[in-house]
Design a protein around this nucleic acid. Structure first.
Lengths: 335, 335
DNA sequence: CCCCGCGCTGGGAGCGCTCCCAAAGCGTAG
DNA sequence: CTACGCTTTGGGAGCGCTCCCAGCGCGGGG
């Protein structure tokens, strides 16, 4: 690979002038700029990013921390982030981080600081005070998605409101015996939204005077998880709800499939509302509350860029609006 | 952030000794090493990766090029690659690359060379001769997954064999009118496997003397794509196959749902085989040919590491075996 | 006529690290 | 006692880039 010295020599100028002509500002004559650019083209010159980083202090890359890659929300979000970073000219360094504490500890104390990243987007992860301190020490702007920490920027939907909207839709249709399907009750570190959605559901039930009918069939927030929880909840025909809100669309679809297996027709005998507006929801005619992870990814990048430019400390919460999408998995209950 | 000079000073040694104590080989006394390590710990010292890269020539990061992130195969694969790179101590720099030729051109000519990556994993992408030349110039070992180019290492399943196995399973059950669902006929750059699977299906039909019954309902290799193609193909009841092989499980499931909508029962009236063994396939009792993208990701990293150590030119094809997983979406045709 | 300021250029320091090489200390064989 | 080899250490060059600053030519105002 050729260096800027090669380019400078070929163009008959100094390294400094070549640098100015290619990237920096400062005065360069038209003639010199053209000669340098031609030389660079001829030599297929591309600046070595590590050298640039070392000299300028900017690494041109943003770290993205994700607890999972194989779920719709995360991969959509990642696609959005990717797209946003692409036209910000930043590279995306991906850190998958499972449950393992060892890997996580090393991530915050070693792996992230080493890169001197220009920014970090943490998804569905609640950094501990200690971890946050390390990140701030690295002086990196941090934006979290789907989880909020004091003093950092955050992007998310209002999970509580989304579940409330879904529940109210069912209540408005005349349902009283409305259950909640999927999700974990304990606010596990990477399932932060689950608990808030459950809370929104309970709030709506309470407000309608249906607190006594509240019930929750816990399960993984995945299609098989929803299926399993659905079989469990709908199996007992003496105590079957007329409708349920699912923690997410994948769980909702699993629940619908479980209902079909049990011979229940949707929406005649059972109404279902999801949260997400998953790619597959249209195919299952699922009524749902839309959240747009791709948009959230773009918003996160946007927020990060603003913070990188401004340089001031964060604390802004960017909450995206949720909208009910009515399809045909919901109807008034049979009398 | 503190530098190695700070650490050296605090430990009362020179930069050279500190460097040796922390990372490099060479002689360091036990006492000096301890003092240096203690100093590093106290100062929260973490080496600046750009400086290391500049000095050593190794960037400690691997580029991953992906045409899509929102499909099962790709996200599973990415998870596998991520996992493999994690314990190789390499960072994963992700480059999503859509159809756009402009972004793609810049990727190969600028973005990738700039990083001086230690290796590149290209997924489902056929680099052109020109692009390949640029990459080789950067002297980067390249491993491709799901697509093969002359002279580079590659990991994939044998798509043709997988489709053949699926088709033969149906023929063995007594089916004669077997169709192929989904996928594109033209070997589009990022749908390379589709064409090979179609070829495998045709080969199996030919071998069984069923060439005349061969037919293909094209469509996107997604659940909605399979649904749509399924409705189209199964809608005409005068010319309905008794079974089909789908280009992938997502398409197969879409096809099954389409069949249900049309009142066809699976497998009594229609047998279905997919290719993938998708996470959701168990739930749909789908018979399928298993491919394990996570394993492929790990294999790709493995191959890359070997190539990085050895330094010799590539050309090894690592083909993973495929295995038929029989569930209950297939049965003998009704007579 | 002198000097100031503008446009342009090149020298060279410095970013933080690694690694080569010279040198010093020391035990031991000749 | 000298010489040699082994361990240990520090000085300093160099990786490729940016950017500060000094310098140079030149036109125009005082």
């Amino acid at each position: 690979m050729s260096t800027i010295a090669d380019v400078a020599q070929r163009a008959g100028v100094s390294k400094a002038t070549a640098s100015r002509a290619l990237s920096g500002g400062g005065y360069v004559s038209e003639a010199a700029r053209n000669r340098v650019q031609a030389a660079a083209r001829d030599l297929h010159y591309v600046a070595h990013s590590s050298a640039t980083t070392l000299a300028t202090g900017r690494s041109l890359s943003v770290g993205v921390i994700m607890p999972a890659l194989d779920r719709w929300f995360f991969s959509e979000l990642l696609a959005g982030i990717q797209e946003g970073l692409l036209d910000a000219g930043q590279d995306l360094v991906l850190y998958g981080i499972g449950e393992g504490t060892a890997a996580r500890a090393r991530l915050f104390s070693e792996v992230l600081p080493r890169r001197r990243l220009d920014g970090i987007i943490a998804v569905g992860i609640q950094p501990s005070a200690h971890e946050l301190e390390r990140l701030v020490q690295v002086a990196t702007p941090l934006v979290s998605v789907g989880a909020f920490s004091e003093g950092t920027d955050a992007v998310s939907i209002d999970d509580e409101a989304a579940a409330r909207i879904a529940t109210e839709h069912l209540i408005d249709l005349g349902h009283r015996d409305v259950a909640f399907l999927g999700g974990r009750d304990d606010a596990a570190t990477h399932a932060y939204g689950d608990a808030r959605r459950l809370r929104g559901y309970r709030a709506a039930m309470d407000a309608a005077g249906l607190a006594s009918l509240t019930r929750h069939a816990p399960g993984e927030a995945t299609m098989p998880g929803g299926y399993e929880a659905g079989v469990r909840m709908l199996g007992d025909r003496t105590r079957r709800p007329t409708a349920f809100v699912a923690v997410c669309d994948e769980a909702a679809i699993g629940g619908i499939i479980a209902a079909r297996r049990l011979g229940l027709s949707v929406p005649a005998e059972l109404s279902v509302v999801g949260i997400d507006d998953h790619l597959h929801s249209g195919m299952f005619s699922l009524t749902t509350v839309r959240q747009q992870p791709r948009q959230q990814g773009l918003a996160a990048v946007e927020l990060l860029r603003r913070r990188m430019d401004a340089g001031d400390a964060g604390g802004a919460q960017h909450t995206l609006a949720s909208e009910l999408v009515v399809r045909s998995s919901t109807a008034a209950p049979r009398v």
